[in-house]
Design a protein around this nucleic acid. Structure first.
Lengths: 360, 360
DNA sequence: ATTAGCACTCGCCCGGCAAGAGTGCTAAGA
DNA sequence: TCTTAGCACTCTTGCCGGGCGAGTGCTAAT
């Protein structure tokens, strides 16, 4: 019982600190939360919590603030799962409804998530390495350049210029496109690249051989996650005037280093937890610039996902991309986690729809 | 002569203030610049310059700082045109060399410009409204959705999903694409939309009519500059830890309002000045959030541009997009202007190459 | 195990004070 | 008429010291 009240106190401290951003003392706790004991008792509990490493005081005789360990315990055990309000859910679908392309959808999703959480939001486009090919189109753009446009089953459109000494005539090109599409549709990018490489090596194709080789190289380079994933961000301005002062400058730096963010969120979104979102707190991010920040991520676009069923929404299969939010370690974890999960589900839905109704 | 020395003093004040970011006094001026008079004389000149509105003092008995009018006079008359160093020029072409697509090129250009200027850089993709059509491809992505991929002469690839009650079979689709491409290649988006609309209205096309109508609508909506221009940004983090304190928070806000930035830079890049770059200082931006910021822009991708000839690089024709840099009003105007101009020229070159060597 | 009481510790705010940088003005020199 | 030296004046900045308040830790009583 002492045990359990202590954790109640921990929760109370964290909740208050998240709201006020100021060290919280024993008396203010007794005011705001009606746990039936006096401030002196709370003081004892807080001292114990400090011994165990859940709290610290910034200086002697000030209130306590949570440590990373405190936050970790909070998100693992103490956080009450609060589903989004119906209004918010409606907001999401409205906001995402009018989009005209995948690009547009993801951009909107980022803005939306930023608005809900009041923090930075990041949405990654589906990784090309995990997508399959729907269509390839090659059009000449100048006397020695061709543009290859690759369309995947997730609706993503990628482009890559190909250099060529000698431009094939348009008839050759169309037949080449047709063969490629016939043989590669539905395959992963990597295996498509392999297939095309065999085309390049078969003698009958003449001038097209070099083109095929180039295309194969292009596809292989696209299959590299880190290079070829687009990152949509929103809400960076919020950082500046929330805590303009101190520890947020390095965070902005980190955001420009998209590769770092990518790698971090990618690994985090893959370790599936019970509620589908991964949380990295402070140093758990293993990123110096994010020492004072936390990252909340969820994968989306799971294969065979059916987001609408199942009460706790456990989704199976590996995600094809991720969505996440970054904020200070003292962020509002419950609403952030709820928002990230909700947006991820909607995106899964949207991609899944096309998947389920796919043609050919 | 008094006149001319005064302006020398103005220039000296601005140069020092740009470097130090602190109000500059008469004595420090005599130290750093060897104008052959004493500090007392400088004081008189500075008082006169203040009367004329070129300088202000933040408070009585402090040094002077330039006003907007001061900066304006500086960029119009006083700024010495400093071409980029050969090393920097080489840096630019190296940096832009390895790009694999237009998207990639523009993104790199933004990063590059941000690094040179140490400020925020913005690069816009070529406006679809000013581009002509090279190729349209339509592929089905689900049972009631098609994806239209539009490729322009500038190498830009845009996408738009089309809803359809009933999916045409693949043979119909290919012939439709062929007709569209045959009739619309080389046309502007707007006129292509009109052409396709006539296709929709001619009775022979049956099921394709609704599709044609949808495609026409899509093209028209794309022809709207503000919606359909991608903005590539870089260097936003620099803002934060340069002057973290004060007036830069609203600037970050403004950056998220891409439409505002677009409109501003668009109009600014069109008023061609002698050296090809436009500068808006503080309130000249007509944007409350940019009250303490300046914007340096240049159009790129001029029709028939030949950037390699002509000593002062006057380029003819209307630009098809723009590139720019945003920073505090006390930015280093000379290097910023030089950098913006240089990057704009390189981009013009790259696009122009394809233009000049265009096929068909 | 809880609670009331109390002494103690710091951070924060405020007023005063000295130092320094810069100005405006005046009067004298070219 | 323009320049310059000198001087008094102004205003910011940094620093120091004390009072205030929030909060703790400890002890003793319940």
């Amino acid at each position: 019982m002492t045990q359990s009240r202590r954790m109640l106190v921990l929760r109370a401290v964290i909740e208050d600190y998240i709201r006020s951003q100021e060290p919280v003392g024993s008396t203010s706790l007794t005011r705001n939360h009606h746990l039936g004991v006096s401030s002196a008792t709370i003081r004892n509990d807080m001292a114990a919590l400090e011994d165990e490493g859940y709290l610290v005081q910034p200086h002697t005789s000030a209130g306590r603030i949570p440590t990373e360990k405190g936050y970790r315990y909070f998100v693992d055990r103490l956080a009450t799962v609060v589903p989004l309000s119906p209004a918010q859910r409606r907001g999401i679908s409205n906001f995402l409804a009018g989009s005209v392309s995948l690009e547009d959808t993801l951009q909107r999703a980022a803005r939306l998530l930023a608005r809900i959480t009041g923090q930075v939001a990041v949405v990654a486009s589906p990784a090309l390495s995990k997508s399959t090919l729907r269509h390839i189109e090659i059009v000449p753009v100048s006397v020695n350049k061709l543009l290859a446009v690759i369309i995947t089953d997730t609706g993503r459109v990628a482009q890559h210029t190909l250099e060529a000494r000698q431009l094939p005539d348009s008839k050759q090109l169309t037949t080449f496109c047709e063969t490629v599409n016939a043989r590669c549709a539905g395959k992963s990018l990597a295996s498509a690249a392999a297939t095309i490489l065999t085309l390049a090596n078969s003698p009958e194709h003449g001038v097209m051989a070099t083109l095929a080789a180039a295309l194969s190289r292009a596809l292989t380079s696209m299959a590299d996650d880190e290079q070829a994933t687009d990152l949509y961000m929103a809400g960076t301005s919020k950082l500046a005037h929330q805590h303009s002062g101190t520890e947020m400058a390095p965070l902005l730096d980190a955001l420009e280093e998209q590769v770092v963010i990518m790698r971090l969120m990618n690994s985090l979104s893959e370790e599936v937890t019970e509620n589908g979102v991964g949380v990295a707190i402070g140093s758990e991010t293993h990123t110096p610039e994010l020492m004072h920040a936390s990252v909340v991520t969820s994968g989306y676009g799971h294969i065979h996902a059916k987001a609408s069923d199942g009460p706790d929404g456990a989704q199976t299969g590996k995600p094809v991309a991720f969505v996440g939010s970054i904020g200070p370690t003292h962020m509002d974890y419950v609403t952030t986690m709820a928002a990230v999960r909700a947006v991820a589900r909607y995106l899964t839905n949207i991609i899944g729809e096309d998947e389920a109704n796919a043609v050919g």
